[in-house]
């Protein structure tokens, strides 16, 4: 039986499904191994001191970088988090549909761009990471992207 012509008994699911309102949750922590500055739990830490960050200063994962065999990422973080050449450690935890992927990666900042003095855009080339865990994270988003485009096409009718 094709997807477009389910059997009448194939009611897909409940009429209100709380899962429909859930997005992939991404939690991130950042540590600059060169300067010893770290960002986690809504605070910036330097040594024993810490200062609270505004909610809009959370770390955001913008882009997966792939160049030949190199893996990397582009993140947005508060200003003064790092500069080109710095070594950084990033914890990435994703949670979706009951599955959690947590991993720590180490990389080098290859590009740092200050944006309107309120944030930084960092391109990071990964140097130490679990390639299987990283591939799983990429696959999580790739799969979800395919599902999204299929659903969009199905609902648009073309």
């Amino acid at each position: 039986m094709s997807k477009e012509n389910p059997k009448d008994s194939d009611s897909q699911g409940p009429i209100i499904n709380p899962d429909d309102f859930r997005s992939i949750v991404l939690l991130m922590e950042f540590e600059n191994l060169t300067t010893k500055v770290s960002i986690r739990d809504g605070k910036r830490y330097f040594g024993t001191k810490s200062e609270p960050l505004k909610p809009e200063d959370e770390i955001r994962f913008i882009e997966f970088l792939e160049e030949d065999t190199d893996q990397g990422m582009v993140i947005e973080c508060p200003p003064n988090a790092g500069s080109s050449g710095h070594q950084v450690k990033i914890m990435v935890q994703s949670h979706f549909r009951g599955n959690t992927i947590k991993q720590e990666v180490i990389g080098m900042i290859t590009e740092s761009e200050s944006l309107e003095k309120t944030s930084q855009r960092l391109s990071i080339r990964l140097t130490q990471f679990d390639s299987v865990a990283w591939a799983n994270l990429k696959e999580l988003f790739a799969t979800r992207q395919r599902e999204v485009l299929e659903l969009l096409q199905s609902m648009r009718g073309h």
């Binding site: 992939i24 955001r60 913008i62 882009e63 792939e66 582009v74 988003f141 992207q145 999204v148």
Partner: peptide
């Protein structure tokens, strides 16, 4: 179209 972050440039 509807694209998710984080994306790859190719996607």
């Amino acid at each position: 179209t509807f694209l998710l972050k984080p994306y790859t440039i190719e996607v």
